[in-house]
Design a protein around this nucleic acid. Sequence first.
DNA 1: CCAAAATTGTACTGTTCAGTACAATTAAAA
DNA 2: TTTTAATTGTACTGAACAGTACAATTTTGG
Lengths: 200, 200
Amino acid sequence: MEKLDTKTKMIHAAIDLFHRHGVNATSIDQILESSGTGKSQFSHYFKNKEGLVHAALIYLHDVIRSGKAQTGYEINSWKEMDYWFQSFIDFQRSVNFERSCPIGTIGNDVTDNQESLRAAIAEFLLWSRGRLALFFDERKRAGELLKQVNPGALADFCIAIMQGGMLLTKMNRNSDMFENAAGQAQAYIKSLRVKIKRKN
Amino acid sequence: MEKLDTKTKMIHAAIDLFHRHGVNATSIDQILESSGTGKSQFSHYFKNKEGLVHAALIYLHDVIRSGKAQTGYEINSWKEMDYWFQSFIDFQRSVNFERSCPIGTIGNDVTDNQESLRAAIAEFLLWSRGRLALFFDERKRAGELLKQVNPGALADFCIAIMQGGMLLTKMNRNSDMFENAAGQAQAYIKSLRVKIKRKN
DNA sequence: CCAAAATTGTACTGTTCAGTACAATTAAAA
DNA sequence: TTTTAATTGTACTGAACAGTACAATTTTGG
């Protein structure tokens, strides 16, 4: 357990509380209390609450991009692709199915006049789409996917299932619907693969 | 434009504001102002804010169940099934891609200790799943779907795509990812259909 | 018509909120 | 050391919040 600076402690607490209760149900005072910091530091490091939300989004994006998160986007095999869905279900199980996607939760709370927040989220979505599309594109170039496959559209498909599945899991307090949906998605992807050899 | 009673006016305003800004970013006073009602009526008709949220969920469920909503669950043909996805995209376009699913938005804002709200949402999800599963089951019994098809799982798959797609649309402020995801889902469903005659 | 019930208007309570003021302290630089 | 900058503690402001009190009014039913 390394010692964190004040700003990082605030961001950690904010991410946790945003994820548990949503952005609008989390007050700055709560974040300060749970991170053991004071209000003057907050004003020093962030312009306002929206500034902290933005910093939290950047931080989340960095954690995921650098591979430190439970769910990774370093997908290099069909096995890892299959595990991609499962890792989200595992993550939700670890928090008793009480939470959805940290970024999706923030995205749902963003309103019309918070364009910088929305843009930060859209940037993350574009990045994750790119990671998945890259994998599908590589497999296609390797001749493992049918010629008519659209890697970008397939990536969007996976992300929609994942976001929707996580929301359904939170609302149902169980992962049944998500698991069914992921199973169907995996079956679809399998059906797009070129069948030559009996290999994993 | 029929004259609405005070309670219904409050529920209408609440649904609109919850949908636009989320539950936690909407105050009772805002609801009262936009519905032209007073606080004493609010206390008279609802126990507290959670009571109004619950009433809004029941109302939404009724509107959808009775077929008065833009998106219907009366699916009786493959054409209507294809249109099911499209109707959500059309709905979001009509609000400038600024909003997600009304019920999903509320569901995202529900916290641990609001079990009655969560249960009301889960009930709606179960109903919508039942509607879709019924259609798939009927088609399967009619010999139009492959024997290995699981109607319930396919219904969950559609709902996950729809919920995730709507959230992505709101976050991206465009429906590109949703349309791609829906296209893939439709292709998958098509691949499960028994091919005998060249018919719609 | 009259009494009981349902509904509404106005004012208020105590709390929590985001954001600010400003002095005190610590750290860094010259 | 000295002085400049960075950081922190405490207290406060005005607004918004959920919820309540209670009297006034309207509607309903006998």
